[in-house]
Amino acid sequence: MAAKSIVYDLTDIRRNFELGEMTIKVLQGISLKIKSGEFVVITGESGSGKSTLMNLLGMLDVASSGVLEFDNVNVVGLSDDELSDIRGKKIGFIFQQFHLLGTLTALENVALPLMFQGVHEEKRWARAKKVLTKVGLGDRMHHKPNELSGGQQQRVAIARALVNDPEVILADEPTGNLDSKTSSEVMGIIRQLHKEGSTIILITHDEHLVKFGSKHIVLKDGRVV
């Protein structure tokens, strides 16, 4: 990966939601660039459009207008499956609600994204074990989510985000459901990933976390302040 290459290039991104007769303009023209290796912290009041922006960056959602280039490719207009492929190969998600599958063990949860990429079984387990060990859960691999604490569950989710060796990690309030002690553990892992060169975009409304980032973006009413 060429250093300082541009990962995201957004130009006048807008996202409207139609609610019956009404049009809610959530994002009202966002333009920004995110470079490889950056640790971007996005803050803003509740309802300012942070998650909506994150969904666009993660290609879970499609902008109403504007250009969103990822790896120099405009992703607006790509098909559902094409977007799935990009997510599966290049993006790692960390959600506030962890979103682990309750029927699977930590290891199985972490290996799951690789299954959709058709990665061979042995390789999947090896890779999943490696990232689980990396987040400090080498001894909890065969536990189900309900046998793990909140902090441990979020670490499993981080491992899952890492398993496909993504180009960018998107974390939407990853510490929102955690107490301060476990939340600093989780932040420790994320900072470590940044140090190792990962591109990270973190959404939070916790001002204390801003200092960890290399870049700070504040949203207000759907615009970058």
Binding site: S84, R87, G88, F93, H99, F116, Q117
Partner: peptide, 16 residues
Amino acid sequence: TREIGLLKALGARRKQ
């Protein structure tokens, strides 16, 4: 429903 959304986020295609 949320699980389906998650699978999509993790890169699952429609056919999968």
